[in-house]
């Protein structure tokens, strides 16, 4: 592993230029109405997976998006890459408006924006070997005409993910590799096109704890040494906290808080973030005790609560929370929160 100390991670954020700008991104999945419902002209309902999210990511940054399952974080990642078509909103990558691109232009952009998936067992076609898995993006993009030409690229990608010597892995099949190795192959596949921006969707949640560090550190190194920008999507605040420069917390399709990692973890402002951090267990038996968690369960994203979406579960909710949806406002430099009472 390259030597990147903890202090080096503590870089000031807010430097550098914005590489990805997301404005009011919305993604609804319409529900199919039954014939009866159609006849009764009931309004078409939809799962409001992502409901108006705005943020930006700076060049070379590791930006974490944290939330429980169903909060829309995965959908958001897919929609930013236009693997899902957004319902509304705008995504700008450098000076390219991703949401306005044609299919052909989008194909070109894919060389610059890539994704790493959660499940290394699922994200590879079991019928292809490592060599063909990594070569696939190159062939799709027409960067190589045959698999032999692809070898130098593949070897470099394998070296980048520290799978050396590369020849040893080229002709293995996914099922012959361990989980950690597979996820490295997945990273190598994303890297082979030399992208500037990678969405990492829960890249370590399927891996054993002892090897999660490998992948996380790999991402950290790529970000620090190669300037690759990451959007790290996870449910695990603890790992996000270790590698991310900034973290955003999502709840029911909305971003409720975002800020520099330390500021957010040590001084969470939003009641949801506080509860989330409180619920995370610590591998330290001397700090036993269950933190205060929110009552109830996450409501359905089909009919999210009015006003602040957290209000039915929020310990500090008041009448205004049922009526008025709070905006993300700056608490201090870079730290923003969407709560009527967090700042007072």
């Amino acid at each position: 592993m390259g030597a990147v100390s903890a202090t080096e991670q503590e870089r000031s954020v807010g430097h550098g230029e914005v590489i990805l700008d997301v404005e009011n991104l919305v993604k609804y999945f319409p529900l199919r109405r039954g014939i009866g419902q159609s006849l009764r002209r009931e309004p078409e309902r939809a799962v409001k997976a992502v409901d108006g999210v705005s943020f930006n990511v700076k060049k070379g940054e590791l930006f974490g998006v944290v939330g429980e399952s169903g909060c829309g974080k995965t959908t958001m990642g897919r929609t930013i890459l236009r693997l899902l078509e957004p319902t509304a909103g705008r995504v700008t990558f450098e000076d390219i408006e991703v949401t306005a691109l044609s299919v052909e232009q989008l194909k070109q952009l894919r060389t610059r924006m890539q994704i790493i998936f959660q499940d290394p067992y699922e994200s590879m076609n079991p019928r292809l070997d490592v060599h063909r898995i990594i070569a696939e993006p190159l062939r799709i993009q027409g960067m190589v005409s045959n698999s032999k030409d692809a070898i130098p690229y593949i070897e470099k990608a394998l070296e980048d993910v520290e799978m050396t010597p590369p020849e040893e892995y080229l002709y293995r099949y996914p099922h012959e590799l361990s989980g950690g190795q597979r996820q490295r192959i997945a990273v190598a596949r994303a890297l082979v096109l030399n992208p500037e921006f990678i969405v990492a969707d829960e890249p370590v949640s399927m891996l054993d704890v002892s090897i999660r560090g490998e992948i996380l550190n790999l991402m950290l190194n790529l970000s620090r040494e190669r300037g690759v920008t990451f959007l790290y999507i996870t449910h695990d605040l603890a790992t996000a906290r270790h590698i991310c420069d900034r973290i955003a917390v999502m709840y029911l399709g909305k971003m409720v808080e975002k800020g520099p990692t330390d500021s957010l973890v040590k001084h969470p402002l939003h009641p949801y973030t506080r509860a989330l951090i409180g619920a995370v267990f610590v591998p330290d038996p001397k700090r036993k005790g269950f933190g205060k968690v929110l009552k109830g369960e996450v409501p359905s994203p089909v009919d999210p609560p009015s006003g602040c979406r957290l209000h039915p579960r929020c310990p500090i909710a008041q009448d205004i929370c049922k009526e008025v949806e709070p905006e993300l406002v700056s608490a201090d430099d870079n730290h923003m929160v969407a709560c009527h009472f967090a700042l007072g």
């Binding site: 894919r110 890539q114 699922e122 696939e136 993009q141």
Partner: peptide, 26 residues
């Protein structure tokens, strides 16, 4: 719906490519 299909699309694969290379052999 398998992730490897999405993965190919994320690399810019066309529908025909996905059908021939990923769906057909499976």
């Amino acid at each position: 719906e398998r992730v490897f299909v999405e993965s190919a699309k994320a690399s810019g694969a066309s529908d025909a490519y996905v059908m021939l290379v990923h769906i057909l052999p499976n």
